[in-house]
């Protein structure tokens, strides 16, 4: 528990023409915790993270970083604050190798403006080792040849390499097998233990109840409520997602199947 969250959104709204993708959404992410963000398709999860990432700057409301209001107008602004997003299918470039992907868009250069491949490769090895990612044999293999779990590991490692404070993971376990899902969930937990604020978007409540500390439910672009995993049930979350029933409406603890 920390006094003020690293990242907080207050009354955030975002429209695309006539479509109100987000209206008056509150959200926060704390250091050392995994905050799950759930909601049905079209609930505004993607828009919310893209707003935080600077891809869709917000129309209304405010974003606070460590208690200070900040304006995020583009991906670079988010990156400067230490906010990193791992997108579902858009995190890695297939025709580049692991090192090239880890540094894509932020390549290290030497005095002559040449790419500093040696240092980038070295730091990639260190980062992967620091996160106990052992499944990647050489950081010089092409990403196209990696398994789904390995790809996610690289994408996550890439996000945390920049002294990031907040890491947002969009469906990191979608389309992964059991063992690979295990790998990625372990990695998510490890990130929180290292003191990062982790935001996890997932459709899989089982995964969420396994790694998350809190859950924020979005429905039709509004926030339904926030739940502590230790004090809620999957049933309650499903009701919040589908019917928008907030936590206060809970009748008793015995949830039917």
């Amino acid at each position: 528990m920390t006094d003020s969250p690293i990242l907080a959104l207050r009354g955030v709204s975002k429209s695309f023409g006539q479509v109100h993708a987000l209206s008056q959404v509150d959200f926060h992410a704390d250091a050392g915790e995994v905050m799950a963000l759930v909601g049905d398709n079209g609930a505004g999860k993607s828009t919310l993270i893209k707003s935080i990432a600077g891809i869709h700057p917000i129309d209304e409301g405010e974003i606070l970083f460590e208690g200070r209001p900040v304006s995020i107008g583009g991906p670079k602004d988010a990156g400067r604050l230490g906010i990193e997003v791992v997108y579902q299918d858009l995190a890695l470039c297939d025709n580049l190798d692991v090192v090239q992907n880890m540094y894509l868009g932020r390549e290290l250069r030497d005095r002559l403006w040449r790419l500093d491949e040696a240092t980038m490769e070295q730091r990639t090895r260190e980062t992967l080792r620091g996160l106990s990612v052992t499944t990647i044999r050489t950081p010089r293999q092409l990403v196209a040849g990696l398994s789904g779990g390995q790809r996610q590991s690289v994408a996550v490692a890439r996000a945390v390499m920049w002294n990031s404070r907040v890491v947002i993971l969009d469906e990191p376990t979608a389309a992964l097998g059991v063992a690979q899902t295990r790998q990625v969930l372990d990695l998510v937990r490890r990130l929180a233990e290292q003191g990062l604020a982790v935001v996890l978007i997932s459709h899989n409540l089982h995964d969420i109840f396994e790694v998350a500390d809190r859950i924020t439910v979005l429905r039709l672009g509004r926030s339904v409520g926030e739940y502590a995993v230790a004090e809620t049930t999957q049933q309650e979350i499903v009701q919040a997602i589908t019917a928008g029933i907030p936590a206060a409406a809970r009748s008793n603890g015995e949830a039917p199947v």
Partner: peptide, 23 residues
């Protein structure tokens, strides 16, 4: 040997990935 070249390869493979990477 330049970042520009690297970005070009990323761009040609997947525009969205390149954009989301801050290129």
């Amino acid at each position: 040997w330049t970042a520009f070249g690297r970005h070009l390869y990323a761009l040609g493979t997947n525009r969205m990935v390149a954009q989301f990477s801050g290129i």
